[in-house]
Design a binder for these strands. Structure first.
Lengths: 348, 348
DNA sequence: CTGTTAGCGCGTTCAT
DNA sequence: ATGAACGCGCTAACAG
């Protein structure tokens, strides 16, 4: 309604009979300016509710205090947790977060990058799509002097700082837990071989089997393409109907584990007595499903915070060269689906 | 690496021996400019990959093509769905979305508003916190000529356009379904009486009971303060141990329903045979829980899309006056927890 | 200590 | 059909 034009430096300079630059400097307590002038200007500014025009400042300084964040999917427990961490960390440093999603489609990711690049962010946080392998679109970004940090789903083809989950160790610990509980025939529903995270988890799985000298069967490894419930269901059926069925199944992610559980229940196979089930990611569903699902927590919030803090630091130091990788440790969460030894409450 | 300064209008003007304004106009195909010049300039621009400096343009035009989005919680199925819709809709119109969360704390919401206002968004989408009642911080926004649209969790104290779920009708249909299935003693775990959505749902519940002349008992209405699993559990225990226990429970949200289900299972009460359970929101958990939970889908994605489209339209028309309210229809999703009549598969 | 001046990159009169 | 010139609001180098 009262569309009162905003007060500018010029206005307050005119009103106070000083020059614009004096006003500008006074406002930021520049040492050149007398305490008296500073006091007067600040008082006037406060009283008349002066707010610097951020557009002008950003234009002048050639930066926006916005950072771009691209994830494959926004409606996804892990990624929304990461975003939450990123937003909170950014806020603390005075940055905004502009969020975009690729839907795991390379073209969408490229477009999002271009938009961010053209439009206005000071740096980029990205978790790449399943279709991204080299990532020259991100290179464009770096070439303009804007730092890029990859997190979670990354490509080694692109040399940037990275914040990743220790998938190998997480998988190793998960499988070790299964072994400790007494399971000795452990299958793995893995992800696509082109995806680094999937490979790391598979390697952790194999290493644990090897270290503890448990049976290894290539037929016990199934590659999920879509990483959904359906695949968990179908592969479990295959596994359980085979000559040599496993007695535990380690899944690439909780959603797949859900399919596993559905099949086992349908087939009347007791979890965890006859077959143990281990997920990965520790989604909300892990506590909800029946029996509750053991899983590996990836500390998404922490990943978001760490990646954002790193990015902002690089932005502020104009550091486009360093390429350190930070690994966030995972955390095994044991629930009913693998608790062979003692099961206090039974399945409710 | 090759930190090549970006090409500006000035550069291309100098290179082509024309004036800056000619270059500027040629680039946007201004009718004053000869086709020949336009061709040459455009060709040069394309070849040398000219990209207008968005910061400068925005500064000049006093807008940012960013919209602010504030939700109580980001890590929340419904809200992340809304955000997803908002981002997709904004992208189509060439806008970015800056996301922030209030954590249901008024102070955080106010701060987020201030940041957005000062920093640079052209408009605001907001779903208010549980602590927000009047919302003068949003008024600040409007006073600067920037449109605000409230969605889902709104306050009528602030006169803005709104996009809301038809909570009343959703609740009415949910309870009607319970009645149709044969339940005749229906309780309601409602939300806080200060929250509009909670009231609407409670009204829908009461109206349905009245219309179909079913028993109404004030003791069957319990007010959840925190809207969590725990409350669902505790209130259900109370209800079921009372003199006159209900045989169906309609919950303010799926999370509460989860607590309800947990108690009933623990108490050995069969769902849906002895007691039917109805949620609200249709989270992912509704399909995962056992038995699967009937719920009311709120079409979060559509809410995000609609609110965003409305906002952008207002931004572009400098429309700060209109205050229409759009109601997005809900959709009842029937699952096992209320399927008394026929239950094909049984609970798996 | 303070004021003058000169841009940042772009859009937009106003001349020609 | 084109160019010169100005200004958006702010910062900063340079003078005094």
């Amino acid at each position: 309604m009262t569309e009162n034009r905003k007060l500018t430096l010029k206005d307050i300079a005119r009103e106070l009979n000083i020059s614009i630059s004096t006003a500008s400097r006074a406002l930021k307590g520049h040492p050149d300016i007398s305490d008296e002038t500073i006091r007067i200007v600040k008082e006037y500014a406060l009283k008349h509710n002066y707010v610097p025009n951020v557009l002008a400042v950003n234009f002048r300084k050639n930066r926006t205090f916005n950072i771009g964040l691209i994830v494959p999917e926004l409606v996804h427990h892990f990624f929304s947790t990461v975003i939450s961490g990123a937003i909170d960390a950014a806020k603390k440093k005075g940055y905004n977060v502009i969020v975009s999603q690729s839907n795991d489609i390379l073209q969408d990711e490229v477009t999002a990058c271009r938009t961010f690049l053209a439009s206005s962010v000071d740096g980029l946080l990205i978790s790449i799509s399943n279709e991204t392998f080299e990532g020259k679109h991100m290179l464009d970004f770096i070439n303009e002097g804007k730092p890029v940090i990859q997190f979670d789903k990354i490509t080694d083809q692109l040399d940037t700082p990275k914040v990743i989950v220790d998938d190998f160790e997480g998988a190793y610990q998960a499988v070790k837990h299964l072994i400790d509980e007494g399971y000795d025939k452990i299958a793995h529903l893995r992800g696509r071989s082109e995806v680094k995270n999937a490979n790391e988890r598979a390697l952790g799985y194999e290493k644990a089997l090897k270290d503890f000298k448990r049976e290894f069967q290539p037929e016990w490894i199934k590659e999920c393409k879509l990483i959904n419930e359906e695949e968990g269901y179908v592969f479990t059926k295959e596994l359980m109907e085979s000559e040599n069925p496993p007695n535990a199944i380690f899944c690439i992610t909780d959603l797949v584990a859900l399919g596993v559980i559905k099949y086992l229940k349908k087939a009347g196979i007791n979890i965890p007595q006859q077959v143990g089930v281990m997920g990965f990611s520790n989604w909300k569903l892990a506590e909800i499903v029946n029996p509750s699902l053991s899983s590996v927590d990836q500390h998404g919030y922490q990943i978001g915070v760490t990646a954002t803090e790193m990015l902002i630091e690089k932005i502020q130091n104009h550091d486009i060269e360093s390429h350190e990788t930070v690994e966030i440790k995972t955390n095994l969460v044991v629930r009913d689906s693998t608790r062979l030894s003692k099961n206090e409450f039974g399945n409710i």
